[in-house]
């Protein structure tokens, strides 16, 4: 009895979940990093709330981007090191499906967790509650898109010794449009202006990346795993 692609993908997602919950510290580290980075800004700039509110979208987005990147490094690395990635690529399932499943699981464990934690950080940065829906939506779209871009970067750098700096070097320039639209959507929501335009751009980027990036990431893995 052969196993269908969707069944195999759900198996991979469950595997990632189980692995993550066996190692909760690795799950929490990027979130703590997110908190710490946001704390740096009031300490280095000014604790004044009005100033913070002006800086908040940028601070929030830069911190989210950096902490997501931190967790993306582990996307394929662990599996490549212990040889289980080889087993996955020989599992008679399309590599693209495996990449999609792993990336979705990764986003659920890192990006979604970051989105859920963002109101806490937002409150500390004096972002009004009224701007929360836009902020949450933009972060959800942005982190998901970043996960796909990161999957390409992680696939390209998986076998390399100094992979983590290179991963940032590769992924951050690609992620700049996300930062622009995400921060601007949040900024406009704080100012009480319409932020639909920026959100639509983010959504378009997300759909576009979701469609193409899995293939690029699978191709990247094929290159580096050989």
């Amino acid at each position: 009895m052969s196993v269908g692609v969707l069944e195999a993908m759900s198996l991979v997602v469950r595997r990632e979940m189980r692995l993550a919950f066996r190692r909760p510290d690795q799950l929490l580290q990027p979130l703590v990093f997110f908190l710490i980075v946001t704390t740096l800004f009031p300490l280095s700039l000014s604790p004044e709330l009005s100033l913070l509110r002006d800086m908040a979208p940028g601070v929030l987005w830069v911190a989210a981007l950096l902490s997501s990147l931190l967790s993306l490094e582990t996307l394929f690395k662990g599996d490549a090191e212990d040889g289980t990635l080889e087993q996955l690529t020989l599992s008679a399932q399309p590599l693209v499906a495996i990449v999609i499943a792993k990336t979705i699981a990764h986003w659920l464990l890192s990006g979604a967790a970051l989105v859920l934690m963002s109101p806490l950080v937002a409150t500390a940065l004096a972002i009004p509650v009224g701007a929360f829906p836009t902020m949450l939506a933009s972060l959800a779209l942005g982190t998901l898109t970043l996960s796909w871009l990161g999957a390409i970067g992680a696939g390209l750098t998986v076998g390399l010794r100094r992979g983590s700096v290179l991963l940032s070097l590769i992924v951050l320039p690609l992620a700049m449009p996300l930062l622009i639209f995400g921060a601007s959507a949040t900024d406009r929501a704080i100012g009480g202006e319409g932020s639909a335009g920026a959100l639509y751009f983010l959504a378009a980027l997300c759909v576009f990346t979701c469609t193409l990036a899995p293939f690029a990431a699978a191709a990247a893995l094929r290159i580096t795993l050989e």
């Binding site: 390409i152 390209l156 590769i170 320039p173 690609l174 690029a216 191709a219 990247a220 290159i223 580096t224």
Partner: peptide, 11 residues
């Protein structure tokens, strides 16, 4: 070479 080519295409 191959990795750089792929990244070039993504870029």
């Amino acid at each position: 070479d191959r990795a750089a080519a792929l990244l070039g295409l993504v870029g």
